[in-house]
Nucleic acid binder design. Sequence first.
DNA 1: TATTATAATCGTAAATTGGCGATTAACGAT
DNA 2: ATCGTTAATCGCCAATTTACGATTATAATA
Lengths: 117, 117
Amino acid sequence: MPDLSEVPFAEHVVELADLAKALGHPARVRILEVLAQTPGCICGDIVVQMPLAQATVSQHLKELKRVGLIDGEISGPRTCYCLNLEKLARAREMFTSLFAGIGCCGSEGELHGIDPQ
Amino acid sequence: MPDLSEVPFAEHVVELADLAKALGHPARVRILEVLAQTPGCICGDIVVQMPLAQATVSQHLKELKRVGLIDGEISGPRTCYCLNLEKLARAREMFTSLFAGIGCCGSEGELHGIDPQ
DNA sequence: TATTATAATCGTAAATTGGCGATTAACGAT
DNA sequence: ATCGTTAATCGCCAATTTACGATTATAATA
């Protein structure tokens, strides 16, 4: 996670790249799927559905939490994870906006400029 | 790029993660923007719009080419890069499908299962 | 043919990532 | 108070990523 105030790229570019990076590993995409499918979002339930050690899954969860795509709520000895739908919606908008500004009928000018927050 | 035939994740998960990884750096997102804006898609034109050395930009171009989001056509001493709109469309579909399967009104069952190729 | 311009590649260094076992912390339940 | 369960963190290592200068290859052009 580069220092946003220092990098010479536009903020929306950095934000999108950071989200993409978080999605840039099969385990993390899979975790999102599992969380979407599993009502009880206990960490252990995720681990058993994954071909990775508990420590590794925990790392991936941490990364997803870092960008805000999931939330983790400590509940006794266990942690309940769930999708952050607001953040997911924003991520979807940013990707949609990127592809719209890039791939489609030349609406030049502002490319995927989404108003922050 | 993990060996697709060996990894214990579903193919669409691996494919999406790989695309996301390619988008997971500000320079590469920026390159896509530049290519969308610039009619003449010469490599040098990209380099001058980027706060990175030529060698570094070339590496990022290579990564984007690896996943097929851009094409590079050698033309004399220079290389003309352009967006691969088909691949971009597929990428857009995969991301859309991911978010639809995850973030939205419970259409359970197949999550972002896009028929390959 | 020699020169120039362009861009890919090489070599390298620093930082980050991904993986795991082991440990720790936090809590519920004996 | 002790035990067992859960999950975060630590420590470590290998592999990858990112960045750059230098070099090389290619092909126009003088």
